[in-house]
Design a protein around this nucleic acid. Structure first.
Lengths: 158, 158
DNA sequence: TCAAATTCATTCGTATGCAAATGATATCAG
DNA sequence: CTGATATCATTTGCATACGAATGAATTTGA
C-alpha cells in the first residue's frame, strides 16, 4: 500500500499512533461494526433471494441437525450460536411446519430433544446445493484468493 | 496449519478443487454467512459492554446526524443502511429520550426532518472515543496488517 | 395540465436476538 | 443425605430488520 515497510512491532506501534491523527473526524462508514452489519445484511438478502421459504437461522438449525442428528434444544443453540430464547422460537416455527420434531429426554427430564422429520431431511438435502450458491454469490466481489483470506480473518473475529 | 507449503497459484488451484472433493459433507461452520453472523454478534456484544445505554443502530443514527447535520428520516435511513420501517423505530426511541428532535420540512410536506438536540450532541461527542475502543477490541484478534486487509475485503462485500 | 409514477412516511405482521426472571430438574459439596 | 449450585427450558420485554400495504405529497411525462 505504498507505505514504508515495517516490522510487526512497528505495525502495532503505528496502530496505536494512528488513533491520534485527527481526533475530530469520525466516519461511521469506516467502522468495522457498521460494515460488518452491512455485509451481514447483504448476505441475508442474497440468502432470501435463493431460499425464500426459510431464514438463515432456520436453515442453520436444519443443517446442524442433518450433520449431527438428534440433540437437545439447548445444545443445538450452542452449536448454531443462538441463545435459549432465540433457538426456542426457531424450533417452534420449524416444528409448526413439520420439519423437526421434539421429544422428551428419557433420563434427564429437563431436556427437549430435537430431530429432523423425513420432510425436514428432504428439505435440507434439497437446500444444501442452494446454500453453496449463496456462499458463492456472497463472496463474488472477491477473487478466490481474497475470499480465502477473508474467510480466514473473519473466522478469527467470530 | 501443518499443510505442505505451496505457492499462491497452488493455493488458488486448491481452493477451486476444494469445492468438488466431497459434495456430501456440508459444514455450517465454514459458511461465510454463518461466520458473518457470529462475527456480527460478537461485535454487538463488545459494543454493549462499552456503551450500555445505546444500541449500535442508535449510535449510528446519532453519529451520522453529528456528521452531516439535519436531514430527512428517509435520507438518514439510506445513509446508515436501514429501511424506512426500521429507522422510524430507531428515531422514535431516540426522540423519546430527548437525543434527537423532528420537524416538518417547510417545502416538501412529506419529509420529516431529524436533528440532534444539544443533549444528543453532547452524548455522541462523549461516546465517539468509546466507539474507537470498540473498534479496537473487535479487531483485537487480528494484527494491524490483518485488520487493514480484513477491512478492505469486508468493505468490498458490504 | 393532469393522470401516472415516484417518493416519503407510517403501520402491520413476522422473525431474529438478547437480558432477566422463573420453574423444574439435576448435580455437587459438605 | 441435603442444601446450595448449576443446567435446561420457558416466558416477558425490548430492539432491530424487512416485506407488504397504505396514504399523503411530489414529480414526471404525454
Amino acid at each position: 500500500m505504498g507505505r514504508p515497510q515495517m516490522s510487526g512491532e512497528d505495525n502495532l506501534l503505528r496502530l496505536v499512533e494512528a488513533e491520534e491523527p485527527d481526533e475530530n473526524s469520525y466516519h461511521l462508514q469506516d467502522q468495522v461494526g457498521f460494515i460488518l452489519r452491512k455485509a451481514h445484511q447483504r448476505h441475508v438478502s442474497i440468502f432470501a433471494s435463493h431460499i425464500a421459504d426459510l431464514t438463515p437461522p432456520q436453515f442453520a438449525a436444519l443443517a446442524k441437525l442433518y450433520d449431527i442428528g438428534e440433540t437437545s434444544q439447548n445444545q443445538l443453540g450452542t452449536l448454531i450460536a443462538m441463545d435459549a430464547a432465540t433457538v426456542k422460537g426457531v424450533i417452534d416455527r420449524l416444528k409448526a411446519r413439520g420439519l423437526v420434531e421434539v421429544s422428551k429426554h428419557e433420563v434427564d427430564k429437563r431436556r427437549l430433544l430435537v430431530n429432523l422429520t423425513p420432510a425436514g431431511r428432504e428439505a435440507i438435502e434439497r437446500l444444501i446445493p442452494l446454500a453453496r450458491a449463496i456462499t458463492d454469490e456472497t463472496l463474488a466481489p472477491l477473487t478466490a484468493k481474497e475470499a480465502a483470506t477473508f474467510l480466514r480473518l473473519l473466522a478469527k473475529l467470530a
